[in-house]
């Protein structure tokens, strides 16, 4: 890849905030905490949760990143598998970029370079999450085994009322 390739124009690129298709439901939390195997009563026991600083049943701190489900009426994400037996099942999902415009680059293989997360508060039943993604860093690094494209996507999550929930800084390494 040419050394002059400059991706800096992508840094700071953002899109309109993305709102989760529906408010958080208690049954969604039930399924979620059963799957992560966390029996903390603040996730299901109304009376217990009311006695805590949360004042109500909450979802686990990192839940909001999963709140952006497939909206009712949208195209079937599994239709791709019916058309193409080699489809991996991810068509139509963009759980990392939240709809940020893809970066055109010659790199084919993506590795998860890790996450760094800051938490401010948990989402409560009845609240709706909003995601504001942006490219925080896009740069080419010259590694020992060749060039890498380093992409940091910073997504700030809040409630629709504007209360900050968390910030997720996800590093992706393309090679």
């Amino acid at each position: 890849m040419p050394e002059t390739e400059d991706f800096s124009a992508f840094v700071g690129t953002t899109i309109a905030p993305k709102t989760a298709p529906m408010p958080l439901e208690q049954d969604t939390i039930r399924r979620f905490v059963q799957a992560i195997m966390d029996a903390d009563p603040v996730y299901y026991d109304e009376a217990e949760a009311r006695r805590t600083r949360f004042g109500a049943i909450i979802a686990p701190p990192l839940y909001p990143v999963h709140a952006f489900r497939h909206p009712a009426g949208a195209p079937d994400p599994l239709a791709a598998i019916q058309r193409d037996p080699d489809s991996d099942g991810t068509e139509g999902s963009d759980a990392v970029g939240f709809g940020l415009p893809p970066i055109p680059s010659p790199f084919k293989r993506m590795l998860n370079g890790g996450n760094e997360i800051e938490f401010f508060r948990c989402l409560r039943v009845g609240e709706t999450a909003v995601a504001r993604p942006r490219y925080a860093d896009v740069s080419v690094k010259h590694g020992k085994s060749g060039d890498l494209l380093l992409v940091v996507i910073e997504t700030a999550f809040s409630t629709t009322e504007g209360d900050p929930l968390l910030i997720n800084r996800q590093t992706l390494i393309w090679r």
């Binding site: 992560i36 903390d40 701190p61 997360i117």
Partner: peptide, 22 residues
């Protein structure tokens, strides 16, 4: 990720707060 968040949440207890995790 959630298992590591739970590890810290439980260690910090109901009066603590997990601020950052990597």
């Amino acid at each position: 990720q959630h298992v590591l968040v739970q590890l810290m949440k439980d260690a910090l207890g109901p009066d603590g707060w997990l601020w950052k995790i990597r």
